[in-house]
Amino acid sequence: MTSSYPATLARVLALLDLLQSRPVWSGTELAERLGVTTRSIRRDVDRLRELGYPVNSEHGAGGGYQLGAGRRLPPLLLSDDEAVAVAVCLRLAAGGTVEGLGEAAVRTLAKLDQVLPARLRAEVEGIHESVITLDGDVSRVDSRTLLTLARAVRGRERVTFRYAAPRGSSDRRIEPYRMVATGRRWYLLAFDLDRDDWRTFRLDRMSDAVATGWRFAERDSPDAAAFVQRAISIAPYEHVARVRIQAPFDVVTAQLPPSVGTVTADGPRHCVLVSGGNHLDAMALYLARMPWDFVVLQPPELLEAMRRQAERLLRAAAAS
């Protein structure tokens, strides 16, 4: 009897897989697919019900077996890729990237981690370590692209993809190093093989990402968080401002998103913000919205923009 148990369990799981694949199956169809009698199918259906799966059955023409919605969540049947995807998402939620889900994600992740095979647990750990989160307000990205890149980062595997940049689309060949989530977007730090330099890529601008199978030797890479932060807050912009804020470093960084710019401590009560922008007037208005007093260190053109905006606001206040 013990020797037949694994076969019975495998058949029950195969039955569950079939019931999930389409709305209704007849008993005869299931018996033929699994190579057993309809009586065995009825017994296996009863076993699924004992496990908590609500299997509905109807007799007569047009009847059959149907997997319904139950009052409690039964054990899940997941493929390797599905288990890894669920675990990675739970890791991100547990880290606070999804508001309100942290505590529940930690509990669920603990349960899933107990039953994951060692090889899948190692893959989840590797993918999680390949991702850096600067803040929790992250936008939705294509899960296939995310997993392809995360696995390539872990396995040091070259990747090709189509990239839609503001100046046009192009095919890219890269060596991926780290993914960074910040400012409602995902970014990839990678070494661009065609441009022979480090680059930052937005995941929402990628398509057709494919791991090539070619391994690469690890290079001396820049700090991923600092590189991406500079790339998205300073490098692409026409103007770069340096502002001395009259507030401690910890206070400012707790309220200012990393995508705005880089902040460095300047003594115990002050810090310096370096931020980029294409329009000085817009930069002046953004700085005015900050809750702290500040002094503009550079550029002098920003001071002129602040005066213009101050005069405009005063005229509006007087007219009102």
Rank of each mutant, 00 (worst) to 15 (best):
G276W: 03
M283H: 04
R22W: 05
W214Q: 15
I174M: 07
A150G: 11
A288S: 12
Q246D: 12
A317Q: 07
R219I: 04
R156T: 08
W214A: 15
D135L: 00
P176A: 00
A152Q: 09
D192S: 04
C271R: 01
F161H: 02
Q309N: 14
S3Y: 10
T160Q: 11
V153G: 07
R178T: 07
V180N: 12
L314W: 06
A14Q: 14
L120Y: 00
L90D: 04
D142P: 09
M283N: 02
P268F: 05
Q298V: 04
L101E: 14
R162S: 14
P268Q: 05
R202K: 03
A317P: 06
P300H: 05
D196Q: 11
R158I: 10
A10W: 07
D113V: 05
R11Y: 03
V24S: 08
M306K: 07
R244K: 02
S139I: 10
E99G: 11
R307E: 15
G276D: 03
V260R: 04
I127M: 08
D196T: 06
R308P: 08
Q229Y: 10
D194M: 03
Q309P: 06
D281A: 08
D250Q: 10
T148C: 13
G68Y: 02
T97H: 05
Q66A: 13
D81S: 14
V131G: 01
D113N: 10
G64F: 05
D220M: 10
V153T: 12
A105D: 04
E123I: 08
A231Q: 13
T2D: 15
E301H: 07
